[in-house]
Design a binder for these strands. Structure first.
Lengths: 196, 196
DNA sequence: CCTACCGATCGGTAGG
DNA sequence: CCTACCGATCGGTAGG
């Protein structure tokens, strides 16, 4: 949490990846050119290719890293022996904290994955599907155990994932809502609702 | 609801707009070329320009139509004399039904608006901001009236809008969840939560 | 890390 | 509605 990443501690490739995530988020994968990316680093476009193989490879690295984090967290989560509602809370909290710490990369993985090279697209979609299935299984367990209401488990899963994937508060620092308020209110909302 | 639109009843321009919405959604605004769009209509790219002015104009038309629908619905909503929770329910229901009936256009307006030409971008963002502010005002009223829990109104607004904007169930017809289940479960979830 | 440059494709126009 | 074509820009390579 809250690691301080100094510019100097990053390799050139890491700097390229960081700026790529930022630009792909701001302008879209197809809307951002390699020349823009090079400009953001103060070099010429052809120089990028001393560090990377292709534009698609950049997207692939960004999406892979995110997907592996979420897959790993899900794996840990299902092994824990805690009630389902606590598991769901932990999963939602992970989404929110990831968004706060690595917004660009997560946004790109959530919104630009369709531009992945075919083979990696297939892998990514499989991981995403597995993640969603694991999530839905948890919801079903909660319903069967009587902790959760009898709603459609797929619909519940996609409502929660849709909500956390689209969150963009943290950009608007101007509103100055404390991180803890965002985290706790979103979790409360998605688990217990907003009506008294 | 559920108007049947026959291909013959559409003008050429409407057909172009319909296919543009579909392609912009599937491949992104910048990722879809005018030649692809022309192909989808069985004509050559230059022929498109007998019916439209530019690629950006297509995006503008799609986003404008969606924005006006939501702005109009909000205006009607605030005038109604019903409790706040009913107003919120009606707003959420409108999002879901719009998504079911005009998925491509709504998806494009929600996800590709950043590629709008500068002037229209400004207008669009203002409408979006106004919509969000109206939504937040309703939530605040609900909290003050004691109907809603004391959560941060901005966070509640953005959680709900994030959830409804990202919904993509309807593509997966394979799951065969009835429309009414989706609608009712999402609304129940976002208002009353999933925990017993 | 650069300059020079490639073929492909882009949005769009001219002219019929 | 078409063919022919424009300048600009794309991702990427050659060579140093």
């Amino acid at each position: 949490m809250g690691k301080i990443i100094t510019d100097k501690s990053l390799s050139k490739k890491d700097k390229i990846l960081r700026n790529a995530a930022s630009l792909f988020r701001a302008r879209g994968f197809t809307g951002c050119s390699m020349r823009e990316l090079a400009d953001s680093l103060g070099i010429e476009a052809p120089s990028l290719y001393n560090h990377i193989g292709s534009k698609g490879e950049l997207l692939q690295h960004i999406c892979e890293k995110v997907a592996e984090s979420f897959t790993g967290n899900m794996k840990e989560n299902v092994q824990q022996e805690v009630p389902v509602d606590e598991k769901l809370e932990n999963l939602i909290r992970f989404h929110i904290r990831f968004m706060m710490e690595d917004f660009d990369a997560l946004w790109v993985a959530n919104h630009e994955w369709k531009h992945l090279p075919p083979l990696h697209l297939k892998t990514f979609l499989q991981q995403r599907k597995d993640y969603e299935n694991n999530f839905t299984t948890l919801v079903k367990q909660g319903i069967e155990a009587g902790q959760l209401k009898n709603l459609d488990a797929s619909v519940v899963t996609l409502t929660i994932l849709s909500a956390v994937r689209g969150l963009e508060f943290w950009q608007r620092k101007s509103k100055s809502i404390p991180d803890s308020t965002i985290e706790n209110d979103v979790i409360h909302h998605l688990l217990k609702g907003i009506m008294k």
